[in-house]
Design a protein around this nucleic acid. Structure first.
Lengths: 147, 147
DNA sequence: TATTGTTATACTCTATAACTATA
DNA sequence: TATAGTTATAGAGTATAACAATA
């Protein structure tokens, strides 16, 4: 049985990382003219290719109305376009523009740089242990969310 | 030199934890009738005792206007009160109500339970290694933020 | 009838700027 | 003159509900 103190301290450190990581991401995305929710949407497009707004609403777990707003913003900033669905005239397909794709690639590069910044100076065994810890925590959080 | 793959995977896991932790906190705070920003403000009051809105704006790193809105909400929900400042008639002191204090104590308890849920099943050495990793990452993030 | 996306409305969090009361 | 907090205004992100067009 480990002291409660130790688990509390670990959680506090983890929460501080949440704050710092959020700030880092927000600032880095701003350089691509993206907010976190818009970047999330764009990232789904990058992963899945052009999809309907309905599919985006499901993927992002937000309402269709919310997707309308996010896509409006991304159209205005030139990151995506709305296109006619080839077979379903109710639906619209949202697709990345070349600028949007470029922003996503810059995001991916920044992601890789951040990973290097955070973990490059860890020894291989330390990184392995840390990654195991992360997996452990993820499991517990998933279980807690399910219940 | 470790493979880039490994650092990228560690970052991805960390980001997933950020998302899960955010969802968990948001839901748990909602049970106390609190949002994340309002809980943050209330937590400062719990730590520092009654303070002016100006001090809250500095502590939360938001504008005074924003504090007005957050305090309005917390007054409406019964978590805090506005009181006259004893010497400076421009200023108002924001203080936790008994209900607010109770909510904060429930928060602290939930925090401790979460820490137990996440780390109780880790071996002591594993927890130590993980905590070292968290500290390492925090350092790197702080340096990145400073630059 | 069911589904897609919109308009209408509203709430929270955030910001800047102008203003009031007080120091 | 400077400071504390407000009103005025704006924009992003979120939600529900009602509705139009289409399946």
């Amino acid at each position: 049985m480990k002291p409660l103190h130790d688990t509390g301290e670990a959680l506090d450190r983890l929460l501080e990382i949440v704050v710092l990581l959020n700030a880092d991401m927000t600032e880095s995305l701003a350089q691509q003219g993206l907010s976190v929710p818009r970047a999330h949407l764009a990232w789904v497009l990058h992963r899945d290719g052009p999809v309907t707004q309905r599919a985006l609403a499901d993927a992002l777990d937000v309402t269709p109305r919310n997707v309308t707003g996010l896509v409006d913003g991304l159209v205005a900033s030139g990151h995506v376009t709305r296109e006619a669905h080839p077979t379903d005239r109710r639906a619209t397909l949202v697709a990345l523009t070349p600028d949007g794709t470029a922003a996503l690639e810059a995001m991916a590069e920044g992601h890789q740089e951040l990973a290097a910044t955070l973990f490059e100076t860890m020894s291989a065994p330390q990184l392995r242990a840390f990654r195991d810890g992360l997996e452990h925590v993820t499991q517990r959080l998933r279980e807690a969310a399910g219940s």
